[in-house]
């Protein structure tokens, strides 16, 4: 089971931007990639719990400011290190409105990787 939540509009999140939103206990990273593609992932880095929204987005690749870990936000896959991926939330765009689906299973929605 999961619920859809309106979290932002495209006015808040321009192309090339990332933002952090909260839904209940979930901290979510929103990214607006080239080509009107919006993605939603876990908001804290799976490495050392830095906020990913403070990272640098270059094309599709986000570099966390904590320890320079890199993630491909098109897929959520780790670029460096490559053995680590971000937890992804489904996203729905209705006009300008961005909605994110958050599971209602009462469990944390993030992956952790160390290094």
């Amino acid at each position: 089971m999961s619920d859809w939540h309106d979290v932002a509009t495209l006015d808040d999140l321009w192309e090339g931007d990332v933002a952090e939103v909260a839904v209940g206990p979930d901290t979510i990273l929103l990214a607006h990639l080239p080509g009107r593609q919006v993605r939603a992932y876990q908001g804290i880095c799976p490495h050392s719990e830095y906020s990913l929204a403070g990272g640098d987005l270059d094309g599709d690749v986000l570099t966390c400011t904590g320890h320079l870990w890199e993630f491909d936000l098109r897929t959520g896959e780790g670029v460096n290190p490559s053995n680590c991926r971000l937890y992804e939330y489904p996203v729905r765009l209705s006009g300008e409105q961005i909605a994110v689906s958050v599971p209602t299973d009462g469990r944390p929605h993030y992956n952790r990787c160390r290094g």
Binding site: H67, L68, W69, N80, P81, N83, C84, C113, G115
Partner: peptide, 14 residues
Amino acid sequence: DEPYKISYREYVHN
């Protein structure tokens, strides 16, 4: 194998 890779050039830059 180390998970996080870095080259010397990148290391120096950082």
